[in-house]
Write a protein that binds this DNA or RNA. Structure first.
Length: 418
RNA sequence: GGAGAGGUGGCAGAGCGGUUGAAUGCGGCGGUCUUGAAAACCGUUGAGGGUUUGCGCCCUCCGGGGGUUCGAAUCCCUCCCUCUCCGCCA
């Protein structure tokens, strides 16, 4: 979340951000929140000075009693003060509830270089790597290749769990597992990320720390009869590892990675990408998370993108880097670069990684700080990115390395994993 | 699942219901001493919020929430978590 003091002092900048994110309708709520915040401070002040009176008198009572004198009169005075304080305190609770109801729903400030635009058509291509492969035949979409080669059993996946679930068959399951191991090896051994296996379901507090809750509850799967939510990405547990902690400055930066399945309800995307492996309720991903000194988050984002790119370069798959526009960028992010792979079968670029700098937005929610050498405690900056989405990488391999006989070849770097 | 114990400052560990935001030890920081270092000694060392030009002052926080009381780390209720023993189990 944003610092409420920052909002009250920079209302114009916050409004510009909301306008860029197409959330002008939010203006009134934010203005109202700041009014409430100012009122709250007044009430807080009153309540504090009443408490101060009460504390002083209570101390006196202790002394009077020690002298063996009568305390009934002063005791009555304190009772009166307490009654006044009580109603003020109830007001304060109300104020805080109202303020938080808005504060937790305000998205992050945007980096100046985020392209302005209402949707993904305004995303800006930054650069590309490699080039589109050429085929002497019409390349097939991955779902055909996957089905014909017994990589994926779509029908039985649906039978087991419903739409947007798949069953990987023997060769497909092995390939998926090879990709997981390959990516984890590169990120841990070559890029210095520390590997974790986190819980695949987490509590409400953890989901709030990274920004999924309270605003995006409908995107999550919740376990019935329990307070747990299935993670939509390993970003959630990895970033929250250090929630409510004060780190040492010399411990930064922290590079974390984990393979996890990811669970998403995909509410609001009915009819979108219904075929194939692109949009599933459950998919696999190797995630990268960085917890860094605020001075370094910009360059850390660049190097994180490079860490994700490396995988595609080793697999020799053409891709491009795109800066997400203000209408497409995520709630918690101030700047996001997507990596989009070329899929010749469907003739489109598709997102395979999304790398974001959240600056102190998540750190403030999750309360992750560090103590600087000057002894000051400050919020860290957090970044996250896919390194990469496994299923979509498998899609890219199927489509880019398909052969005229309907089969496909395995990239050289993966062979030792199969 | 059954029985018991416990959650206090970076860590360890005290804390009769009233100058306890919290003894003591370790660690950290500063200083004295030393050629330097160690040891020893002295001092200092939690977080959040409000207010002030500043020194400072005030409020809150001893797992979370609620209650008793003029006053709660200390008493009561409740939830969460940790540990030990027994049972069950991948």
């Amino acid at each position: 979340m944003l610092d409420i003091r920052y909002i009250s002092e920079n209302m114009d900048k916050v409004k510009t951000m909301l306008e860029k994110r197409n959330q002008v309708k939010f203006f009134a709520d934010v203005e109202d929140m700041i009014k409430k915040y100012q009122e709250k401070n007044k009430v807080q002040h009153e309540s504090d000075s009443l408490r101060n009176q009460r504390n002083e008198k209570s101390k006196q009572i202790g002394k009077i009693k020690a002298d063996g004198k009568d305390i009934s009169k002063i005791s009555e005075e304190v009772k009166k003060i307490n009654e006044e304080t009580k109603s003020l305190e109830q007001d304060l609770v109300q104020y805080n509830e109202k303020i938080n109801k808005v504060l937790y729903y305000i998205p992050n400030m945007l980096d100046d270089i985020v392209p302005r635009g209402k949707d993904e058509t305004f995303n800006k291509v930054i650069r590309a790597h490699g080039k589109k492969p050429e085929f002497k035949f019409k390349p097939k979409p991955h779902w055909d290749i996957a089905e014909e080669n017994n990589i994926i059993d779509f029908k039985r996946g649906t039978k087991l769990a419903g739409s947007r679930f798949v069953l990987y068959n023997s060769r497909g399951a092995a390939l998926e597992r090879a990709l997981i191991n390959f990516m984890l090896d590169i990120q841990t051994k070559e890029h210095g990320y520390k590997e974790f296996i986190p819980p695949f379901m987490v509590n409400e507090k953890t989901m709030t720390g990274t920004g999924q809750l309270p605003k995006f509850k409908e995107d999550l799967f919740k376990i019935e009869g329990s307070d747990h939510y299935l993670i939509p990405t390993a970003e959630v547990p990895l970033t929250n590892i250090h929630s409510d902690e004060v780190l040492k400055e010399e411990d930064l930066p922290l590079y974390y990675t984990a393979y996890t399945p990811c669970f998403r309800s995909e509410a609001g995307s009915w009819g979108k990408d219904t075929r194939g492996l692109i949009r599933l309720h459950q998919f696999n991903k190797v995630e990268l998370v960085k917890i860094v000194h605020p001075d370094n988050s910009e360059k850390e984002l660049d190097s994180m993108v490079a860490d994700a790119e490396k995988i595609l370069q080793m697999l020799d798959i053409h891709y491009r880097i795109v800066a997400l526009s203000s209408g497409d960028i995520g709630f918690s992010s101030s700047l996001t670069y997507d990596i989009e792979v070329w899929l010749p079968g469907v003739e489109a670029y598709r997102e395979i990684s999304s790398c974001s700098n959240c600056r102190d937005f998540q750190a403030r929610r999750a309360n992750i700080k560090f103590k600087s050498s000057k002894g000051k405690t400050e919020f860290v900056h957090t970044l996250n990115g896919s390194g990469l989405a496994i299923g979509r990488t498998l899609v890219a391999i199927l489509e880019n390395f398909q052969t005229i006989d309907g089969d496909f070849t395995i990239p050289e770097v993966l062979k030792k994993y199969l």
